[in-house]
Design a protein around this nucleic acid. Structure first.
Lengths: 110, 110
DNA sequence: TATGATAGGTCGAAGGTCAAGGTATGCAAT
DNA sequence: ATTGCATACCTTGACCTTCGACCTATCATA
Protein backbone atom coordinates (compact mmCIF):
# COMPACT_ATOMS: atom_id res chain seq x y z
CA UNK A 1 0.00 0.00 0.00
CA UNK A 2 1.70 3.20 -1.11
CA UNK A 3 1.34 5.51 1.87
CA UNK A 4 -1.20 8.14 0.98
CA UNK A 5 0.47 11.28 2.00
CA UNK A 6 -2.43 13.59 1.36
CA UNK A 7 -2.89 16.08 4.03
CA UNK A 8 -4.44 14.34 6.92
CA UNK A 9 -8.05 15.36 6.87
CA UNK A 10 -8.77 17.95 9.44
CA UNK A 11 -10.58 16.43 12.35
CA UNK A 12 -9.69 12.82 11.65
CA UNK A 13 -6.52 13.08 13.68
CA UNK A 14 -8.32 13.88 16.91
CA UNK A 15 -10.80 11.06 16.68
CA UNK A 16 -8.11 8.56 15.75
CA UNK A 17 -6.00 9.51 18.74
CA UNK A 18 -8.98 9.39 21.06
CA UNK A 19 -9.97 5.99 19.78
CA UNK A 20 -6.50 4.53 20.18
CA UNK A 21 -6.29 5.83 23.73
CA UNK A 22 -9.73 4.49 24.57
CA UNK A 23 -8.34 0.98 24.22
CA UNK A 24 -5.32 1.60 26.42
CA UNK A 25 -3.02 4.40 27.52
CA UNK A 26 -0.05 4.81 25.23
CA UNK A 27 2.94 7.03 24.64
CA UNK A 28 3.36 9.29 21.60
CA UNK A 29 5.22 7.10 19.19
CA UNK A 30 3.08 4.16 20.22
CA UNK A 31 -0.01 6.09 19.24
CA UNK A 32 1.52 6.98 15.91
CA UNK A 33 2.42 3.38 15.15
CA UNK A 34 -0.94 2.08 16.23
CA UNK A 35 -2.76 4.50 13.94
CA UNK A 36 -0.64 3.42 10.99
CA UNK A 37 -1.39 -0.17 11.89
CA UNK A 38 -5.16 0.04 12.26
CA UNK A 39 -5.53 2.13 9.12
CA UNK A 40 -3.22 0.02 6.94
CA UNK A 41 -0.86 2.94 6.49
CA UNK A 42 -3.61 5.16 5.16
CA UNK A 43 -2.88 7.64 7.92
CA UNK A 44 0.74 8.29 8.76
CA UNK A 45 0.93 10.77 11.59
CA UNK A 46 4.12 12.79 11.61
CA UNK A 47 5.64 14.18 14.82
CA UNK A 48 4.90 17.70 13.68
CA UNK A 49 1.22 16.83 13.69
CA UNK A 50 1.12 14.40 16.57
CA UNK A 51 2.69 16.35 19.39
CA UNK A 52 0.88 19.63 18.84
CA UNK A 53 -2.35 17.61 18.70
CA UNK A 54 -1.58 15.78 21.94
CA UNK A 55 -0.76 19.03 23.70
CA UNK A 56 -3.86 20.70 22.37
CA UNK A 57 -6.04 17.80 23.48
CA UNK A 58 -4.45 17.70 26.89
CA UNK A 59 -5.08 21.39 27.32
CA UNK A 60 -8.69 20.82 26.33
CA UNK A 61 -8.97 18.30 29.13
CA UNK A 62 -9.48 15.26 26.93
CA UNK A 63 -6.23 13.62 28.02
CA UNK A 64 -3.87 13.49 30.94
CA UNK A 65 -0.24 12.49 30.76
CA UNK A 66 2.30 10.97 33.10
CA UNK A 67 5.88 9.82 32.72
CA UNK A 68 6.60 6.14 32.80
CA UNK A 69 8.62 3.41 31.18
CA UNK A 70 8.09 2.18 27.65
CA UNK A 71 8.15 -1.46 26.57
CA UNK A 72 11.80 -0.89 25.72
CA UNK A 73 12.85 0.57 29.05
CA UNK A 74 12.85 4.12 27.84
CA UNK A 75 11.41 7.18 29.47
CA UNK A 76 8.03 7.71 27.87
CA UNK A 77 5.09 9.97 28.45
CA UNK A 78 1.86 8.02 28.62
CA UNK A 79 -1.39 9.65 27.61
CA UNK A 80 -4.72 8.45 28.92
CA UNK A 81 -8.30 9.44 28.22
CA UNK A 82 -10.32 11.46 30.73
CA UNK A 83 -14.08 11.24 31.14
CA UNK A 84 -14.38 14.39 29.06
CA UNK A 85 -12.23 12.76 26.41
CA UNK A 86 -14.52 9.77 26.34
CA UNK A 87 -17.50 12.02 25.75
CA UNK A 88 -15.57 13.79 23.03
CA UNK A 89 -14.78 10.49 21.37
CA UNK A 90 -18.46 9.65 21.29
CA UNK A 91 -19.31 13.00 19.75
CA UNK A 92 -16.61 12.81 17.12
CA UNK A 93 -17.48 9.25 16.26
CA UNK A 94 -21.07 10.27 15.68
CA UNK A 95 -19.98 13.25 13.61
CA UNK A 96 -17.79 11.03 11.50
CA UNK A 97 -20.65 8.64 10.90
CA UNK A 98 -22.75 11.51 9.72
CA UNK A 99 -20.06 12.88 7.45
CA UNK A 100 -19.34 9.48 6.05
CA UNK A 101 -22.99 8.86 5.27
CA UNK A 102 -23.37 12.28 3.66
CA UNK A 103 -20.34 11.72 1.47
CA UNK A 104 -21.50 8.28 0.44
CA UNK A 105 -24.82 9.75 -0.61
CA UNK A 106 -23.23 12.66 -2.44
CA UNK A 107 -20.67 10.58 -4.31
CA UNK A 108 -23.03 7.81 -5.28
CA UNK A 109 -25.54 9.85 -7.26
CA UNK A 110 -25.49 9.28 -10.98
CA UNK B 1 -30.96 18.93 10.96
CA UNK B 2 -28.83 21.35 12.92
CA UNK B 3 -26.16 22.36 10.45
CA UNK B 4 -23.00 20.72 11.65
CA UNK B 5 -20.52 23.40 11.52
CA UNK B 6 -17.26 21.74 12.06
CA UNK B 7 -14.46 22.89 9.92
CA UNK B 8 -15.08 21.47 6.56
CA UNK B 9 -12.79 18.52 6.31
CA UNK B 10 -9.84 19.29 4.15
CA UNK B 11 -10.12 17.48 0.89
CA UNK B 12 -13.83 16.86 1.00
CA UNK B 13 -14.57 20.21 -0.56
CA UNK B 14 -12.74 19.44 -3.79
CA UNK B 15 -14.39 16.12 -4.38
CA UNK B 16 -17.83 17.50 -3.59
CA UNK B 17 -17.42 20.31 -6.09
CA UNK B 18 -16.09 17.97 -8.74
CA UNK B 19 -18.97 15.59 -8.23
CA UNK B 20 -21.60 18.31 -8.46
CA UNK B 21 -20.08 19.63 -11.67
CA UNK B 22 -19.87 16.14 -13.14
CA UNK B 23 -23.66 16.08 -13.26
CA UNK B 24 -23.98 19.47 -14.91
CA UNK B 25 -22.19 22.82 -15.21
CA UNK B 26 -23.24 25.28 -12.53
CA UNK B 27 -22.43 28.70 -11.16
CA UNK B 28 -20.87 29.31 -7.75
CA UNK B 29 -23.90 29.78 -5.57
CA UNK B 30 -25.64 26.96 -7.37
CA UNK B 31 -22.79 24.64 -6.45
CA UNK B 32 -22.98 25.75 -2.84
CA UNK B 33 -26.72 25.14 -2.67
CA UNK B 34 -26.47 21.78 -4.36
CA UNK B 35 -23.82 20.59 -1.93
CA UNK B 36 -26.00 21.58 1.02
CA UNK B 37 -28.87 19.74 -0.60
CA UNK B 38 -27.17 16.45 -1.40
CA UNK B 39 -25.48 16.29 2.00
CA UNK B 40 -28.58 17.23 4.04
CA UNK B 41 -26.89 20.37 5.31
CA UNK B 42 -23.96 18.43 6.66
CA UNK B 43 -21.63 20.52 4.52
CA UNK B 44 -22.35 24.22 4.26
CA UNK B 45 -19.81 25.81 1.97
CA UNK B 46 -19.18 29.47 2.67
CA UNK B 47 -18.07 31.90 -0.02
CA UNK B 48 -14.71 32.30 1.64
CA UNK B 49 -14.12 28.61 1.07
CA UNK B 50 -15.93 28.17 -2.20
CA UNK B 51 -14.38 30.81 -4.40
CA UNK B 52 -10.76 30.22 -3.48
CA UNK B 53 -11.40 26.54 -4.14
CA UNK B 54 -12.98 27.19 -7.53
CA UNK B 55 -10.10 29.43 -8.58
CA UNK B 56 -7.55 26.94 -7.36
CA UNK B 57 -9.24 24.12 -9.24
CA UNK B 58 -9.55 26.19 -12.38
CA UNK B 59 -5.88 27.03 -12.23
CA UNK B 60 -5.12 23.34 -11.81
CA UNK B 61 -6.99 22.68 -15.04
CA UNK B 62 -9.84 20.72 -13.50
CA UNK B 63 -12.46 23.29 -14.44
CA UNK B 64 -13.13 25.93 -17.02
CA UNK B 65 -15.47 28.86 -16.58
CA UNK B 66 -17.56 31.06 -18.82
CA UNK B 67 -20.04 33.85 -18.24
CA UNK B 68 -23.69 33.21 -18.86
CA UNK B 69 -27.14 33.79 -17.50
CA UNK B 70 -28.48 32.22 -14.34
CA UNK B 71 -31.96 30.77 -13.92
CA UNK B 72 -32.95 34.19 -12.59
CA UNK B 73 -31.60 36.25 -15.45
CA UNK B 74 -28.52 37.32 -13.60
CA UNK B 75 -24.97 37.40 -14.81
CA UNK B 76 -23.36 34.20 -13.57
CA UNK B 77 -20.10 32.42 -14.13
CA UNK B 78 -20.62 28.79 -15.01
CA UNK B 79 -18.01 26.21 -14.16
CA UNK B 80 -17.67 22.97 -16.04
CA UNK B 81 -15.48 19.92 -15.63
CA UNK B 82 -12.55 19.27 -17.96
CA UNK B 83 -11.26 15.84 -18.87
CA UNK B 84 -8.50 16.32 -16.33
CA UNK B 85 -11.13 17.21 -13.76
CA UNK B 86 -12.98 14.01 -14.50
CA UNK B 87 -9.82 12.02 -13.89
CA UNK B 88 -9.27 13.93 -10.69
CA UNK B 89 -12.79 13.15 -9.55
CA UNK B 90 -12.11 9.47 -10.06
CA UNK B 91 -8.90 9.66 -8.07
CA UNK B 92 -10.42 11.56 -5.21
CA UNK B 93 -13.44 9.31 -5.09
CA UNK B 94 -11.14 6.32 -4.76
CA UNK B 95 -9.11 8.07 -2.10
CA UNK B 96 -12.24 8.87 -0.17
CA UNK B 97 -13.35 5.26 -0.33
CA UNK B 98 -10.03 4.22 1.09
CA UNK B 99 -10.12 6.78 3.86
CA UNK B 100 -13.67 5.93 4.70
CA UNK B 101 -12.87 2.23 4.91
CA UNK B 102 -9.80 2.88 7.06
CA UNK B 103 -11.78 5.04 9.46
CA UNK B 104 -14.57 2.52 9.72
CA UNK B 105 -12.05 -0.15 10.61
CA UNK B 106 -10.25 2.06 13.10
CA UNK B 107 -13.37 3.27 14.86
CA UNK B 108 -15.11 -0.07 15.00
CA UNK B 109 -12.50 -1.99 17.01
CA UNK B 110 -13.52 -2.78 20.54
C1' DT C 1 33.09 4.07 21.67
C1' DA C 2 30.21 4.57 17.98
C1' DT C 3 25.96 3.43 15.84
C1' DG C 4 21.04 2.78 15.40
C1' DA C 5 16.58 2.55 17.30
C1' DT C 6 13.56 4.52 20.52
C1' DA C 7 11.49 8.46 22.76
C1' DG C 8 10.13 13.41 23.13
C1' DG C 9 9.91 17.65 21.08
C1' DT C 10 10.19 22.46 18.19
C1' DC C 11 10.00 25.54 14.26
C1' DG C 12 8.65 27.94 9.98
C1' DA C 13 6.37 27.51 5.70
C1' DA C 14 2.34 26.44 3.38
C1' DG C 15 -2.24 26.05 2.84
C1' DG C 16 -7.34 25.81 3.96
C1' DT C 17 -11.48 27.74 6.42
C1' DC C 18 -14.10 31.16 8.26
C1' DA C 19 -16.55 35.52 9.40
C1' DA C 20 -17.24 39.65 7.73
C1' DG C 21 -17.32 42.51 4.57
C1' DG C 22 -17.77 44.82 -0.53
C1' DT C 23 -19.72 45.39 -5.50
C1' DA C 24 -23.28 44.97 -8.88
C1' DT C 25 -27.69 43.74 -10.98
C1' DG C 26 -32.59 42.43 -11.51
C1' DC C 27 -37.20 42.76 -9.56
C1' DA C 28 -41.01 44.13 -6.80
C1' DA C 29 -43.32 47.25 -3.79
C1' DT C 30 -44.04 51.55 -2.38
C1' DA D 1 -38.56 56.98 -9.05
C1' DT D 2 -36.50 54.98 -5.21
C1' DT D 3 -36.16 51.94 -1.70
C1' DG D 4 -35.28 47.39 -0.42
C1' DC D 5 -34.35 42.53 -1.09
C1' DA D 6 -32.46 38.52 -3.20
C1' DT D 7 -29.20 36.92 -6.30
C1' DA D 8 -24.51 36.61 -7.91
C1' DC D 9 -19.51 37.40 -7.68
C1' DC D 10 -15.56 38.07 -4.90
C1' DT D 11 -11.74 39.67 -1.26
C1' DT D 12 -9.55 40.23 3.08
C1' DG D 13 -7.30 39.08 7.51
C1' DA D 14 -7.11 36.17 11.34
C1' DC D 15 -6.79 31.62 12.77
C1' DC D 16 -5.63 26.90 12.82
C1' DT D 17 -3.66 22.57 11.10
C1' DT D 18 -0.37 19.93 8.78
C1' DC D 19 4.01 18.93 7.19
C1' DG D 20 8.98 18.51 6.55
C1' DA D 21 13.08 19.17 8.64
C1' DC D 22 15.34 19.47 12.34
C1' DC D 23 17.16 18.84 17.51
C1' DT D 24 18.04 16.32 22.08
C1' DA D 25 18.49 12.36 25.08
C1' DT D 26 18.71 7.49 26.35
C1' DC D 27 19.34 2.51 25.81
C1' DA D 28 21.29 -1.68 23.62
C1' DT D 29 24.60 -3.58 20.88
C1' DA D 30 28.44 -4.20 17.97
Amino acid sequence: MPPSNTNLLQGTLDVLILKVLALQPMHGLGISNRIAQVTSNTFLVKPGSLFPALHRMEEAGWLTSSWGESENNRRAKFYRLTAVGRRQLKQETDLWARISAAMARALKAT
